[in-house]
C-alpha cells in the first residue's frame, strides 16, 4: 500500500520549498506562524521531513497500512 497523498507530497518537497509550504499549510490548519517563529519552524520541518523519509524507507511496502493497537 502507498502512503496517503498529503504525506507523499510533504516528502516530495525540496528543502528550499519549505518556506513557502509552511505558511500555506499553517493557514489550512488554522495556525498563524508568528514572524519570530518562522525560521525555527522551517528548520524543524526540514528535519522532520528527513526523519520521516528514514522510517518510511524502512517501512517499505507496509508504509500505508493501518497501525495496530500497540502493545510493548
Amino acid at each position: 500500500m502507498a502512503l496517503d497523498a498529503e504525506t507523499t507530497a510533504f516528502l516530495a518537497l525540496d528543502d528550499f520549498e519549505m518556506a513557502a509550504w509552511a505558511p500555506r499549510r499553517a493557514a489550512e490548519r488554522g495556525v498563524e506562524l508568528p514572524a519570530p517563529a518562522l525560521p525555527g519552524v522551517i528548520d524543524n520541518l526540514v528535519l522532520l521531513k528527513s526523519q520521516t523519509a528514514l522510517f518510511v524507507a524502512a517501512l517499505g511496502e507496509a508504509a500505508g497500512e493501518a497501525p495496530e493497537t500497540f502493545q510493548p
Binding site: L33, V41, T52
Partner: peptide, 19 residues
C-alpha cells in the same frame, strides 16, 4: 508549531513502524 503542520499520515506511518 512544526509538528502541528505535519500530515497525519506521518504519525500513522510512525505507529505502523513501531510494531
Amino acid at each position: 508549531l512544526a509538528g502541528a503542520l505535519l500530515p497525519a499520515g506521518v504519525a500513522e506511518a510512525a505507529k505502523r513502524f513501531r510494531t
